[in-house]
């Protein structure tokens, strides 16, 4: 496009950077204005962590349940599958039958794992 200048694809993405910068600037401005305009007249109790009115005791960052970790693992597995699916959806029409078969096997194998996880109670929250 411009001889030996940067690849034109750069110009396509430049808009994202512009918008990100603008949004971040706006967020920073809001924080700054709020910090400047707001009064400062708190008591010590104002700064206590929220605990429904009871003085807090013990470590406020307790260990969390393993369930969240398992949810994140499950999410990553399906997220990876989805990442493949994005690319697959774009090229599907080039040879529909072959691509259907390829993804059918892929989803089928994962489906076995999904059924196993279901049977083992990985999707139970009680």
């Amino acid at each position: 496009m411009r001889g030996d200048n940067p690849p034109p694809v750069f110009e396509t993405y430049f808009g994202l950077l512009v918008l990100l910068t603008l949004s971040a600037g706006l967020a920073a401005a809001l924080l700054a204005v709020s910090a400047v305009l707001g009064p400062r007249r708190h008591e010590s109790a104002t700064l206590d962590p929220y605990e429904c009115g009871v003085p807090s005791a013990g470590d406020l960052r307790r260990r969390t349940s393993v369930r969240y970790y398992v949810t994140a693992v499950l999410f990553i597995l399906f997220d990876l599958e989805v990442a493949f699916l994005w690319a697959w959806a774009v090229v599907f029409h080039e040879s529909p039958l072959e691509n259907l078969a390829a993804m059918g096997v892929f989803i089928g194998v994962l489906g076995v794992g999904y059924a196993y996880a279901w049977a083992k109670g990985a999707f139970e929250w009680d």
Binding site: V66, R67, V73, G113
Partner: peptide
């Protein structure tokens, strides 16, 4: 996935 299901059951 199988590993995650195993962890979930124990947890």
């Amino acid at each position: 996935l199988v590993g995650a299901a195993y962890v979930a059951r124990r947890g």
